[in-house]
């Protein structure tokens, strides 16, 4: 599948934004999140900026962005529609939570209730995003539970890593420690899920073959000797992307080290030596590495996935 930059940015950025919101609501419920306007502006502000810029990027890649509102109508059947609707609804409790918490407008317990509702809706939104891909039978790499697990873990994981930095930089020590621990756990789960996702791609038996696509399998091996067109067409550009598979092993190593292991080391360092002068720079390195790794992971998620239509163009099995 063609890895469109807008979709990679959308899923990673809004995933991280929703992840930050979930962790913020969790910290608020523990009573360790400062109720202060400047701090709220930095943390909630960044989370909203990530969510909104991601959603905007996803609408800008449409052929007709001015009609994007129509996408909210078919929630009965379409995961894309459900995602849009969940995203819009989630803004209400998330916005109220952010404002009421930061500006001390209501009691903590009332604000935490809003935060919990917002966190739940954030998870629902990320789940819907994952299901857009996990419900596509022609792409067997996506059509399984590991896709959903990956999205549900990596968003909050990245959110926790970003927040660990913000809390450390703001000297909110207790919340920073809790967030680091949470990030470490999520990084470990995320790495496990991703490794399982890759193992699943290799272990699964092919779903469709050139033989079943043409119905000529009973005649032996099926090979295309004449393409309908000399140049690329829409189908090959959108669904016949092949470059990544050549470098898959290297890119997976980059994902594992940059997305998971380096941030893990940074989180451990922060937990063991919370007040050392080098801890903050290490946290920044972990944060930057995590962004590179997660973007590589998402790029691979698209680029490695084979679509059934390629069976008509020379692929033997998907």
């Amino acid at each position: 599948m063609h890895p469109a930059k807008s979709v990679i940015f959308f899923t990673t950025a809004s995933g991280a934004g929703y992840g930050m919101m979930i962790v913020l609501a969790f910290l608020a419920s523990l009573g360790v999140l400062p109720r202060e306007a400047g701090f709220g502006f930095a943390t909630f502000g960044l989370a909203f900026a990530l969510i909104v810029s991601g959603l905007l990027s996803s609408t800008l890649h449409l052929g007709r962005p001015e009609r994007a509102w129509r996408a909210l109508s078919q929630w009965r059947s379409s995961w894309l529609s459900r995602e849009g609707l969940a995203a819009v609804i989630a803004f209400v409790p998330l916005g109220l939570f952010a404002i009421s918490w930061s500006f001390n407008l209501i009691t903590s317990s009332a604000a935490v209730a809003l935060g919990t509702a917002g966190a739940a809706l954030s998870l629902v939104t990320v789940y819907c995003t994952a299901m857009i891909y996990a419900s596509l039978r022609p792409v067997p790499a996506w059509f399984n539970g590991w896709t959903v697990a990956g999205y549900l873990v990596i968003g909050p994981m990245n959110g926790a890593v970003i927040l660990a930095f913000l809390l450390d930089a703001s000297d909110v020590d207790q919340a920073a420690a809790i967030t680091r621990l949470l990030a470490l756990v999520l990084l470990m789960i995320g790495l496990g899920v991703k490794l399982a996702y890759w193992r699943n791609i290799h272990a699964s038996a092919p779903v469709s073959t050139a033989g079943s696509a043409t119905g000529l399998g009973h005649l032996g091996r099926v090979e295309m000797t004449g393409s309908p067109h000399d140049n690329d067409n829409y189908l090959l550009r959108e669904m016949g992307f092949r470059i990544a598979r050549k470098h898959a092993d290297k890119l997976r190593r980059i994902t594992v080290w940059s997305g998971f292991i380096i941030p893990m080391l940074a989180m451990v360092d922060g937990l063991v030596f919370p007040f050392e002068p080098l801890t903050l720079p290490f946290t920044v390195i972990g944060l930057v590495a995590c962004q590179v790794g997660v973007a590589t992971e998402r790029w691979l998620f698209f680029a490695e996935a084979k679509h059934a239509v390629t069976l008509y163009y020379g692929e033997q099995a998907v």
Partner: peptide, 27 residues
């Protein structure tokens, strides 16, 4: 008239039946 050109339908079709019109921005 109401297609937004998200291309998801072309991803959902295993047969490559749908082709996107890049000039008109619709499927």
């Amino acid at each position: 008239d109401i297609c937004i050109g998200c291309k998801l339908c072309s991803w959902a079709c295993p047969y490559g039946a749908r082709e996107y019109d890049e000039n008109q921005g619709v499927m």
